[in-house]
Write a protein that binds this DNA or RNA. Sequence first.
DNA 1: GGCTATTACGGAAATCGTAACCATG
DNA 2: CATGGTTACGATTTCCGTAATAGCC
Lengths: 292, 292
Amino acid sequence: MEPHLLRTFVTVADCGSFSAAAEQLGYTQSAVSQHIAALESDLGTPLLHRRPVAPTASGERLLEHAGPILLRLEAARADVRRTVAGPPSVLALAAAPLAADRLATALVAVRRSHPGTEVSLTVCGREQVVEAVATGEFALGLVDGIAAPSDPLRLSDAVRLRTSPIAHDDLVVALPNDHPLAHRRGLSLDDLTDARWIDAPDAAVPLASLRAATRAGGLRPALTCSGTDVHTLLALVAAGHGLAVLPQSIGAPGVTGVPLTAPRLVHRIELLHGLLSEPAAAALAAVLSDRE
Amino acid sequence: MEPHLLRTFVTVADCGSFSAAAEQLGYTQSAVSQHIAALESDLGTPLLHRRPVAPTASGERLLEHAGPILLRLEAARADVRRTVAGPPSVLALAAAPLAADRLATALVAVRRSHPGTEVSLTVCGREQVVEAVATGEFALGLVDGIAAPSDPLRLSDAVRLRTSPIAHDDLVVALPNDHPLAHRRGLSLDDLTDARWIDAPDAAVPLASLRAATRAGGLRPALTCSGTDVHTLLALVAAGHGLAVLPQSIGAPGVTGVPLTAPRLVHRIELLHGLLSEPAAAALAAVLSDRE
DNA sequence: GGCTATTACGGAAATCGTAACCATG
DNA sequence: CATGGTTACGATTTCCGTAATAGCC
């Protein structure tokens, strides 16, 4: 179970194709085939169905482990590298788009207390925030998600990272102003399972999260929007392409937010970090955490 | 960072010697030297001081990751293997000695509800319980430890395992009956830092745990006792070789348990398990958890 | 000088690419 | 029959053991 074999395995499972994975990894199809064969012979069981390529039951189990293991390896390498490189010169921050605005205000205080600090902020999807904080690429990250009012966020536990709650907010269904439901005082997801939805997993609450939080089926996306641009998503909503669930604080002209009353869910923002060896990062974490 | 290099690295760090690690792993000294050199060149930094062999600062960081990574790899392999092997024929249980007696009573109910079940119980040290449950060698494990009254047990988070509290108990300082302090109503650790202690990390509360739970220094062991035999430990205490901290429920003729009043700590037993695919294991887990 | 890590070197094994092969949709 | 995974095979590299070398108590 060498790491590079695991890596090609997850890539193949991800691509659903040996040749696509080969291209993505810079191997030949033959090498990829040999990698999978080596893994399967090592574990003594088929891991992938061929034609079409899909994980077997055993493959599914391995997939659950492989990602976290590879991430942990990356984190270990980065951790060691950091001891030799010394503290970085820029304070590198990552945030999911619906969490990023928290940084804007908190950074003001840090700018004042640590005037020389150069700051870099990357807005990207939630998984990428978790991964990049885990590998130490960023000192600090903010992620968001939905949960029952009393629950913390359920983050992928690939690597043990320190987390602390930063803020929470109610959820609304975003509708065009002229939508027939826009005047409602509240909406239940159960009434909206057959509505036209926009799935923008990195710019709004992912439909998958909503599905997981409800028993209700449905919630099929009429339009899928990738990328982290909330602005564009709001424009799509305003233009009537479909609905999206967002935290109450996000809005735009042309879009009405109607409180989501059932199921009872809240939007949460959590801070994610590793060791905080830099004083500026520690100070920022303190400022962010104190807000709660 | 191939796993076999990491394995060699942790072994060398553990042994404090290249040649000892080589023997333990079935390599030659030369191979071990090459492994370490490969790792160091890969990470671009020395990981070990030589003569005497000890981890560098970078090496310390790597050590923190390497163990969990290797364990997780083992767990992944075992997990996949289990999908092909099907459910095992014997219900394999592991327990730390101070937690094992909980199994005795709980197993009676399972024996009744699952009459055909063959059971194997292994009593071993806490780390081994965690490792072996993580790799699926055992379906279920019981571990014990100390914590503040409101806290859960702090287990090594190498692999994400399901845990649930089973029981808790007060702590006592075990003394020979004729010890001058044996008539006391309570004792504080602070008064005992300079006493003669027996450190039996796998048969009593480890001194290291006590040190971690207090600010007080001291607690130097006058005698170190390895192995999981609580009976022998109690004999050593009765013979006046030194003191040990145990849960209140453990006792023997010749040994007096005086409540440990400060710091406020309790002895906890927690259940540890993976997926519980076997009905008998699930039933046992249910019985154990219901006791709380 | 003894113990122990490092380096040099060679044989065995593994890795990956080219190319031929084969199976499925 | 075409797309795409498998197998055969060979060049290159890697890996590990033997043995000689070097460094610290």
